[in-house]
Amino acid sequence: MGLVSSGKAPKPLQHLLNYSRKYSLWMLQWGLACCAIEMGAALAGPRYDVMRLGVIPFPASPRQADLIVISGTVTDKMAPAIKRLYEQMPDPKYVISMGSCANCGGPYWDSYSVTKGVDQIIPVDVYVPGCPPRPEAFIQGIVLLQQRIMSEDPAERWRGVTREPIVVG
């Protein structure tokens, strides 16, 4: 990947890379609370069926994953585990924060044990608001992320360029 990470890949190759990354997002589910059930409905529910978008929700390990979905309340006890698994994922990696709790603490904004947003631990690419968001909202988040991947310069992740996070809705 030296060619890509140095940013010297020719444009058609970048396009091809982005295209293939976009439609093979291996997704690590990090289901924590109520949102996990809505995520489960989006993944396993016959009505929503997220796999038609090229999202593969069952990687055996974070080392195979491109995308991590934090869905639910992040507590201070859980935070180190999330950070550790996120660090195991290979670059380029994306984070979807699903639900109010993962975005900002949600209804537990004043609790003594809840982390006020997963963005305090790991950088977030897409925020999906809602308590819990409907599966449609989650799928919208994935579609927006795919659009961003398509328009992205694959090397910018290695150059440390950060973009404004996407907010669904």
Binding site: G72, K77, D110, S111, S113
Partner: peptide, 14 residues
């Protein structure tokens, strides 16, 4: 347990 402890009983007092 406790990875999902959100402190409900304290929050109800507020």
């Amino acid at each position: 347990i406790g990875y999902m402890h959100r402190g409900y009983e304290k929050l109800t007092e507020f």
